[in-house]
Amino acid sequence: MTETLQRKDYLSGQEPRWCVGCGDYGVLKGFTAALAQLELPRENIVIVSGIGCSSRFPHYCSTYGFHGIHGRAPAIATGVKLARPELSVWVVTGDGDGLSIGGNHFLHLMRRNPNINVILLNNRIYGLTKGQISPTSPTGAKTKSTPFGSVDRPVNPIQLAIACGATFAARIPDTDNKMITEVLKAAHNHKGVSFVEVLQSCEIFNNQAWTKVNKKSERAEHTILLQHGEPLIWGNNRDKGFRFNGFDLEAVNLDDPSVDENDLVRHDAHASDPTLALKLAILDFGVSPYPLGIFRQVEEPVYEEAVWTLDRTIHSVQGASTIHDLLRAGETWTVESGSEKQAIP
């Protein structure tokens, strides 16, 4: 690539078909900005999606794209990555696509750890089918399919991803372009699978889902920004923090004279033990400050690299072959012309 590409160069020019006010627009903007800042050649990017509002994503980008079938983007992406490890492969999915119909593939994508970046737009609702509960909808949610309130217990995407073995897990709001771009760049630079949950608002069917996070005026009070090595502090006045009380994260007020700032927990995204990341992941939305940023970022063997390294190693021992030799490997015998007697080699 010779000339530097601008953010807009990563847009296909196709008019997005998302509703006005949909959180997906912000993600598309932050995502294309990340691609431009990373100076990734468009031809080396493949965006794979499933089905749902979020899965229209590939059509709006000027890269290679594969709009797959419901829940199966991880499978397609794994095939692309295994066949062509040098490509930058992104999966864009939603809470229904990725965690309900595609739940099984999600597990295996996380545990194998290919160098694939997964963006999950979590709006806690089915949008494209016009408003039914999703696996992240809160218990009690009243939707078209649950007119008297849902009895299902929701799944927590970050907790699930880490439990499945994700080596990179992050959460971002759909309204903070800068944060979207920074986290997606970090996801790209991470070697191994990167899981990024976007708290996305569905303007039409669930626009109050993440207000406390996505509304700038509420964010400081209701979220906690995770920064590796920094103490866990939040609040409008940055006056609250977490310290350990036994195995529990205990919220404390920094104004309390009995609280020592040095006792606060420092975030460690690089710890191989996932306990702290999981503790943070299970903090309840609406009850505790909701963590944003990178929960976990650890190095583990990368799937497609391991596959290709093993194949190449064995190849270098076995050597190359030809069809001629392949078909003649093992026991063979020849029939000479004009005789029915056989020579046994």
Binding site: V46, Y64, G68, R72, A75, G79, V80, K81, L87
Partner: peptide, 12 residues
Amino acid sequence: AAIGAALGASFA
């Protein structure tokens, strides 16, 4: 996933 990955590889 077996056929999905195969189709991804075909695209690739």
